[in-house]
Simulated scan of single mutants.
Amino acid sequence: MFPLFTHYQTTPLEQWVEALYEQYEITTPAQLSVTHLAAKLRIWVYTMDMNSMAVENNGQFSINVDRRLSPKEQWEDFLHELCHVLRHSGNQMAMPDRYVNWQEQDASAFQLYAAIPLAMLKKLTLPEHKNEMIAYLSEEFQVTFRLAKARIDQIQRRVLQGILDYEYQQYTQSQASKYDPSNWSDATRLIMDKLGQLKSKGVLADGKTNRIL
């Protein structure tokens, strides 16, 4: 469907998530669960009939996961709150809206990277058609169809951006090579030599013709 990962560029956050999983030897989709990841990171997780949230008490962190949600939704909520535990600090109730919005955006991006990690994704043979690919990832990584689609859409955008960046780089390099003296024709080289001689005699200065008195 598209050249997956050929021009894909990872972000610093995605690299951070990949390094985290490598550190804790999380290498397969089967290890991506609330219980396994919470045990690895030593975070207490509990469920209640209330919105999911991360709680800090005297330096100890816990995460409540809304038990009214489906298992896939609970896993996604856990990852969102896990980002707050690992990367953020402070009480959002007392924060400026702009900072709260940044934390939420960061947590949403973390959720995508952590739910469908790049290293695991690269090992899979994906279906050709997008809807089949989304359904396959939803089952393989036990995430909602919505999140699987968001991850694929994200990858497509990143691949497209990578292609555009590559083409622009090729274009700028080709333009620069036109001004490389080693690429000049004999006629161009002769003209440039004449201009250099005139400039050394004071006939040319800063691109302007001066009269010799």
Rank of each mutant, 00 (worst) to 15 (best):
E22T: 13
E22Q: 15
E22L: 15
Q23I: 09
I26P: 06
I26S: 04
T27E: 09
T27F: 07
T28G: 10
T28F: 04
T28M: 10
P29R: 00
P29V: 08
P29C: 05
A30I: 11
Q31S: 09
Q31E: 14
Q31L: 05
L32V: 01
L32H: 01
S33A: 05
V34C: 03
T35G: 09
H36V: 12
A38T: 10
A38S: 15
A38V: 14
A39V: 07
A39N: 10
A39K: 09
K40P: 14
K40F: 04
K40I: 08
I43P: 09
I43H: 03
W44F: 11
W44V: 15
W44Q: 05
V45R: 01
V45W: 00
V45F: 05
Y46E: 06
D49T: 14
D49Y: 04
D49E: 13
M50H: 06
N51C: 11
N51E: 11
N51K: 03
N51R: 08
S52A: 08
S52D: 00
S52V: 03
S52M: 02
M53P: 01
A54N: 05
V55C: 11
E56W: 04
E56I: 07
N57V: 14
N58M: 13
N58T: 07
N58R: 02
Q60K: 11
Q60M: 13
S62M: 14
I63P: 07
I63M: 04
I63N: 01
N64E: 00
N64D: 06
N64W: 00
V65L: 05
D66L: 01
D66S: 02
R67L: 06
R67Q: 06
R67A: 11
R67S: 14
L69E: 08
L69I: 06
L69M: 10
S70A: 15
P71V: 03
K72Y: 03
K72R: 09
E73V: 07
E73W: 00
E73S: 15
Q74N: 02
W75M: 10
W75K: 11
W75H: 09
W75N: 02
D77V: 09
D77A: 15
D77M: 03
D77N: 15
D77L: 06
F78R: 02
L79R: 00
L79G: 08
L79N: 13
H80S: 12
E81Q: 04
E81V: 04
L82R: 00
L82D: 06
L82T: 06
L82N: 03
L82S: 07
C83H: 13
C83N: 13
H84D: 08
H84P: 10
H84F: 11
V85G: 06
V85W: 05
R87K: 13
H88F: 06
H88L: 06
H88I: 08
H88W: 02
S89P: 08
S89L: 05
G90T: 08
N91Q: 07
M93P: 08
M93R: 10
M93N: 13
A94D: 12
A94E: 13
M95H: 05
M95L: 14
M95F: 12
M95I: 07
P96V: 15
D97T: 15
R98M: 15
R98Q: 14
R98F: 13
Y99P: 12
Y99D: 15
V100C: 12
V100T: 14
V100G: 07
N101L: 13
Q103I: 02
E104G: 10
Q105R: 12
Q105I: 10
Q105C: 14
D106S: 13
S108Y: 03
S108L: 09
F110P: 05
F110Q: 01
F110G: 03
F110V: 07
